[in-house]
Structure formats: structure tokens, C-alpha cells
């Protein structure tokens, strides 16, 4: 089911959590709402679910205006960060809950069959008799997903679904959620503050800041063409160097890069650690190495330019570089934005 938000706004007391957000989610799409805490992403999700009412604007499910439909009749599956499993019910009873309270009555055998089917889908067969307290966090979140899917929701909404899990489980569940999504093709919207999670999982990423959409697009679009320094900084580690632009070229104090879109004057260059290279002999920005951090797949060099700007960049594991070395930083790629 296609979802559309039109100029949705929400204020809590004096805090303007969401300020006029318009967003369309195509049927079957997997979309991530990404932003720092306080950016309004969870509030948007909860308004789509019907757990909060919008102060302004409208929310459409397909052609239907769902703005004032209460959550119980909106037909959404909601997965909470801390699972919100019913502690006094077994895994099986948790999954069956939605079917038991539903208006269209199902027979016991029918419910049992569906529970079994969902347990297989989330790969938890044999655990239906356990209580939530007796299974791991990753298993609990899978139960929560099975429970949400049991009522055949039109839309699946996940609020920081993997936020409470450790890194390995998180990666595994991410891949697994992607599989389930392609199997069921259900329109899915999830909230995260983890850029990696959003980029790995989503068809489309919506980046939010202070209650507004800053940029939206495929992971490729937002990573390769960030439209603001905020997006650039939020999506990953960055270095910032002051630059002065003249005649379509930006001078970074030793290196210059093409800046066709910028007017003459001050600008900021944002550089990812992998956008920089190290050379002992020459060409580039003169700098000295302060520390080298060895990581499994690269070496992270922390250096200071002669002008006093700190730089962090990655070099291949076999590159020989030590603290105290002097050399030159070369720029292979950069994003330029007019100075703030």
C-alpha cells in the first residue's frame, strides 16, 4: 500500500518535533527515516502508525485519508525498539494475540497453523512455548516482527528495530529483514539513527534534521551527492578544510580542486577519510603524522596540516607510515559547500 504524508506537523508542548513533512512511500518500498535524536523521525513513524495524531497535514494510505483513523483500525504492524512483547504470554501466544482480538474470528486450528507458519518465517520453530524472558534479544525482536505480521498489516513500521542489539546480531537481523521484505513485498518504513543500517537496508533513505526532511534518495544518491554539509557530516566521518574559490577552482592550501558550481569566495571542503591519500615525497597539502591507528582492513592516519587543520584518512595496510613522519596529503575526491 502506498503511503503519502502531506505537510504533516506535530508539536509537543513547546517542542516542534515535526515541521511540515511531505513524503511519499511507494507500495512495496523499504524506506529508512534517518536522523539524529530529536530530528522527529520517530514522531513521524508514530503518526503513520496512529500512535500520535498529527497537529497539521494529512496522512494517506492509498487513496484513503488515514489521518484520524485510530491505530487499532489502521492496519499497521508496529515493531518497537524494546520489543514490547507481552511478558506473561508465551512466544506463540504473543504471535497469536492479534488474531485472537481480531473481529473476524478464526478457529483455534487456523490460528495455530498461522503461528507455526510465522515461526518458520522468522526461523524460531520450536520456541512457541517459551516466555519472552527466556529468549535472547535478537529472538525477541523476531517474535515482535512475527507478531506484527500476524495481522496481515498493510504497512510495516519499525522503530529503531535493532537499536538494542549488539553489532553482530544487528548485521544478521538486517540481512534477514531484507530477505523477509523481498519475500513478502510489504511496504516498510523504519526509523534508525545508524547510517550504516539505513544505507544497507533501505531502497530509499530519508534524512531528517530538526523536524524537516533534508534530503531523500537512494543510498547511492545520498552518499555520492549529499546536498548539504549536514548530510555529508551525518552519513560518515568527514574532514573539513577551509577553501577559497576563484574562477571555478577551489584552493585548499596546497591542493586545488574544480568547483564549477560555487561562486567566488569562501567555501568548505568536506573530505571522507578514503578521499585522501598519503605521499611522502610531494604534491599536496604538507602535513605531519600524529598517530596511526591499525584497523582490520586499513590504517587510519591522524595528521595535522602545516596550517593547523586536523585530518583523518585511511591508507592501505602495507603503506609504511609512523607518528612523526612528514609528508603530503593528496585529495582524490571532495564535496564543496559554500561556507556557513
Amino acid at each position: 500500500m502506498k503511503i503519502a504524508l502531506k505537510n504533516v506537523a506535530k508539536t509537543f508542548q513547546t517542542f516542534r518535533a515535526v515541521r511540515g513533512v511531505s513524503l511519499e512511500i511507494e507500495s512495496g518500498e523499504l524506506v529508512a527515516l534517518l536522523g539524529p535524536s530529536g530530528s522527529g523521525k520517530t514522531t513521524i513513524l508514530r503518526m503513520v502508525a496512529g500512535l500520535e495524531y498529527a497537529d497539521e497535514g494529512h496522512i494517506f494510505f492509498g487513496e484513503e485519508d488515514a489521518t484520524d483513523i485510530p491505530v487499532a483500525r489502521r492496519g499497521v504492524g508496529f515493531v518497537f525498539q524494546h520489543y514490547a512483547l507481552f511478558p506473561h504470554m508465551t512466544v506463540g501466544e504473543n504471535i497469536a494475540f492479534g488474531m485472537k482480538v481480531s473481529k473476524n474470528k478464526r478457529s483455534k486450528a487456523e490460528i495455530e497453523a498461522r503461528v507455526g507458519e510465522l515461526l518458520r518465517l522468522v526461523k524460531l520453530d520450536g520456541l512457541q512455548g517459551r516466555f519472552p524472558n527466556q529468549i535472547s534479544g535478537g529472538q525477541r525482536q523476531r517474535v515482535a516482527l512475527a507478531r506484527a505480521l500476524a495481522v496481515d498489516p498493510k504497512v510495516l513500521l519499525l522503530d529503531e528495530p535493532f537499536g538494542a542489539l549488539d553489532a553482530n546480531v544487528r548485521r544478521e537481523l538486517r540481512r534477514w529483514l531484507r530477505e523477509i521484505h523481498s519475500e513478502l513485498g510489504i511496504t516498510t518504513l523504519f526509523v534508525t539513527h545508524d547510517q550504516e543500517e539505513a544505507l544497507d537496508l533501505a531502497d530509499r533513505v530519508v534524512i531528517l534534521d530538526e523536524g524537516r526532511i533534508v534530503q531523500q534518495g537512494t543510498p547511492e544518491q545520498v552518499t555520492r551527492s549529499p546536498n548539504s554539509s549536514f548530510v555529508m557530516r551525518f552519513l560518515g566521518d568527514t574532514n573539513r578544510l577551509g577553501a577559497s574559490v576563484a574562477n571555478g577552482m577551489a584552493d585548499l592550501g596546497g591542493a586545488s580542486i574544480a568547483a564549477p558550481a560555487l561562486a567566488d569566495g569562501k567555501a568548505d571542503a568536506y573530505l571522507r577519510p578514503s578521499d585522501l591519500a598519503w605521499s611522502a615525497t610531494g604534491g599536496g597539502i604538507p602535513a605531519s603524522v600524529e598517530r596511526v591507528l591499525d584497523r582490520p582492513d586499513s590504517r587510519r592516519v591522524i595528521a595535522v596540516t602545516d596550517a593547523g587543520d586536523p585530518l583523518e584518512f585511511d591508507v592501505a595496510p602495507e603503506v609504511v607510515v609512523r607518528a612523526g613522519d612528514r609528508g603530503f596529503v593528496q585529495i582524490t575526491r571532495a564535496q564543496l559547500f559554500a561556507a556557513e
Binding site: 507481552f86 482480538v101 507478531r147
Partner: peptide
């Protein structure tokens, strides 16, 4: 009592009465 429990029950289609009897009272 975690408010998310009631929200979860609501999102699964539970009425106020069924949420009280099936979720809140047993806890």
C-alpha cells in the same frame, strides 16, 4: 508498566476492553 505494551496491543487491533483483560490485568 511499559506504555509500549498497550501501544503494541492497540496496533494489533485490540480494543480497550480486550487490552485491559488480556494484557494489563494479567500483568
Amino acid at each position: 508498566l511499559d506504555p509500549a505494551l498497550e501501544e503494541a496491543a492497540q496496533s494489533l487491533g485490540g480494543s480497550d476492553v480486550s487490552i485491559f483483560w488480556r494484557v494489563i490485568l494479567p500483568i
